[in-house]
């Protein structure tokens, strides 16, 4: 077994090029659980948590988008300037595990694991995040919808490193809600991100833990924009209820050790409806 600790992206991608079967270790909060349980043995590990350039974030000159390095931990996203720019991402980050997990767990790690229960993923889906990947032959950017391909599957090539994500800074309400058995230290049984873009008068909703990938509720999104009184920031109670139902229909949940399909679908109906009401508080 080998453990490499590169300190630059260039070094990391050449290590990956030389041994594309290497495991990329970010915060370790997913990978080490599998290792400790004996479900995964390690051969070549590239620990990327000392690459300073991945721990950086920046806002574009026009302040319309934000690029967050893959090594930025949840604890940095939770408060401060990133939280003001993308509140839903901050809320999602705050629900991840515990302080111990949030200090080391990263946005890039969430993308690398690509679990349907990954807390930041519904936010990245709702905001149409662009995922940046790098290899020795260059960089490429894919939208989140083309990045996540299945349960713990993504379109990252073996020689590629996830370097960051770019998100729009939207004018309008946004939030992340999650159902689980406790407040802390919980993996979502169902989760939902709703984001309003007042500049285009659009609503985006993405669901977590209710399908093999994060699900965008395009039918509910398209339908609801015509039902909103944008001037008064108002929606009728009936619209809120139907919006929840339409989001529930979009979910593709299963029964498993964490919950049932029926409960998950109902949870989505409630979460989405509640978020729409928060976004448009007037009846």
């Amino acid at each position: 077994m080998t453990v490499s600790v590169p300190t630059s992206v260039a070094e990391a991608v050449s290590l990956l090029a030389a041994a594309p079967d290497s495991l990329v270790l970010a915060g370790g909060t997913d990978l080490m659980v599998e290792v400790n349980a004996g479900h995964r043995s390690l051969d070549r590990v590239i620990a990327v948590d000392r690459i300073e350039e991945l721990r950086d974030w920046s806002i574009s000159a026009d302040r319309r988008s934000l690029t967050i390095g893959s090594g930025v931990p949840y604890s940095l996203v939770m408060d401060g300037p990133i939280a003001e720019l993308v509140p839903a991402l901050a809320q999602a980050s705050r629900t991840v595990g515990s302080p111990q997990i949030r200090h080391v767990g990263t946005i890039g790690g969430n993308l690398g694991t690509c679990s349907p229960a990954g807390d930041t993923l519904p936010v990245l889906a709702a905001l149409d995040a662009q995922i940046h990947l790098r290899s020795v032959s260059g960089g490429r950017t894919v939208s989140f919808s083309h990045f996540m391909t299945g349960v713990k599957r993504n379109s990252r090539q073996p020689d590629e490193l996830i370097t960051g994500v770019t998100l729009p800074v939207l004018p309008g309400w946004q939030g992340y809600s999650k159902v689980g058995v406790r407040n802390a230290m919980v993996i979502a049984t169902a989760s939902s991100c709703l984001a309003v873009d007042e500049s285009t008068r659009s609503v985006r909703v993405a669901l977590g833990s209710v399908g093999p990938v994060i699900i965008r509720c395009t039918d509910a999104e398209d339908w609801v924009v015509g039902q909103i009184d944008w001037e008064r920031r108002a929606v009728d109670d009936g619209v809120v209820a139907e919006f929840g139902q339409r989001c529930g229909v979009a979910a593709r949940p299963i029964d498993d050790h964490r919950s049932t399909a029926a409960y998950r679908r109902r949870a989505i109906e409630v979460l989405s409806a509640r978020q729409l009401r928060r976004a448009f508080p007037n009846g």
């Binding site: 453990v3 270790l25 915060g27 370790g28 909060t29 080490m32 659980v33 290792v35 400790n36 390690l42 590990v45 620990a47 302080p99 111990q100 997990i101 200090h103 080391v104």
Partner: peptide
Amino acid sequence: LVCACLVL
């Protein structure tokens, strides 16, 4: 603060 069990 980290969980030592999750640190390689």
